[in-house]
Design a protein around this nucleic acid. Structure first.
Lengths: 193, 193
DNA sequence: CAACTTTTGTTGACTAAGCAACACAGGAGA
DNA sequence: TCTCCTGTGTTGCTTAGTCAACAAAAGTTG
């Protein structure tokens, strides 16, 4: 059905939380493919029909879960409430890198199964964040293209790092990555104008 | 209202649990008198009207809470699923003593405010348990009177102990208390028949 | 392949929970 | 005293969640 539920309703918040929590726990036990909607609803102790009132299917739940967790990382570093600086960009890259390894360690199996879904969700949020940053420094050209380039570069660099056999130290890696991404954005920064 | 709710309904179980948990937490913070129904519903994040669908008022909640906690103590020692022996009776006395001090320590203020309510609930359950024990050893006389005498004796001894300034060691105290209670019951025990 | 089991979405009728509004009971305090 | 304020129960109406049943997909096994 998915007739939009009221996010303010305590019941809605509660059952969403139950679903998300059950889902998280299940992902630490088995891989995503073998988790069924029934598993989730049984662990969450809700009716299966209720699940479908909240999420279209288990893929929508995964999307939501990834999105939410990444958003939390962003928000905990108040990156969402700030503007562009090389330091903030550096922190963003670092966050994406850390998120990748966190996913790999907290899930039962390496999440090859759903990596495309993860990539989509993360990139969407990086992109939105960069757009906000760029729009704050009213630039002469459209923000979409620099934001797109930077988004893909950040995600690509983070993936590359997290997949490396012998991962270099995160800090030094990010130091190297930063200029590769910043070059597209620095030109619009106030001090460079 | 209090139109009887279905105990099997997951929603009912959930909100009851929320209410009980909120209540417990509040009792560790302040004394019973100053806990309002509003406090409970706010902490539990449920609607106030919902509270009244489950409990008549905060006194009914207290009754329920005490009753449930004591029952848990009984059940965790499987006293509910056994028959009369001096050893089981000893364990029962010990349980009542421990429960008294547990109440005193886990609640913000010593629970003088609601001790009559506590006493009523505990004694009811001791009595029911003793009745079951006595009925299992089909005795020639009615079980009610020995059960009553033993119930009051047990509760009285436990109260006396928990209120003592310099409490003697629980084990030795119970050893002394046991014969005082058992004398009324032993005569019906199989080996004494 | 066919017969099976499991899981998936979806439905409609019913019940519980949320919400806002109400009248009413104490206090507390000028 | 009168007023203000906080907490109490109760109500009618709305929305969310439960349940059982269903058909249809997707695996499994022989």
């Amino acid at each position: 059905m998915l007739s939009k539920l009221n996010d303010q309703d305590p019941r809605v918040r509660r059952t969403r939380q139950l679903i998300e929590q059950a889902f998280d726990e299940l992902l630490t036990e088995k891989n995503f493919d073998s988790v069924t909607v029934q598993d989730v609803t049984e662990k969450a102790q809700i009716n299966r029909a209720t699940f479908y009132a909240h999420f279209e299917d288990k893929y929508a739940l995964l999307d939501h879960s990834i999105r939410q967790k990444f958003r939390q990382e962003i928000e905990s570093r108040v990156l969402n409430a700030c503007h562009y600086t090389p330091e903030n960009l550096r922190m963003l890259i670092l966050t994406v890198c850390e998120f990748q390894v966190k996913l790999n360690t907290s899930c039962a199996q390496s999440q090859k199964q759903f990596s495309p879904l993860v990539e989509k969700q993360i990139k969407e949020q990086i992109y939105e964040l960069l757009l906000v940053w760029l729009r704050k420094m009213n630039i002469p050209v459209s923000a979409e293209m620099p934001a797109t380039a930077a988004t893909w570069a950040i995600y690509g660099l983070a993936s590359y790092w997290s997949a490396s056999k012998n991962r270099p130290a995160l800090e030094t890696y990010v130091d190297e990555a930063l200029p590769l991404v910043a070059v597209n954005l620095n030109q619009f920064a106030p001090e460079a104008a």
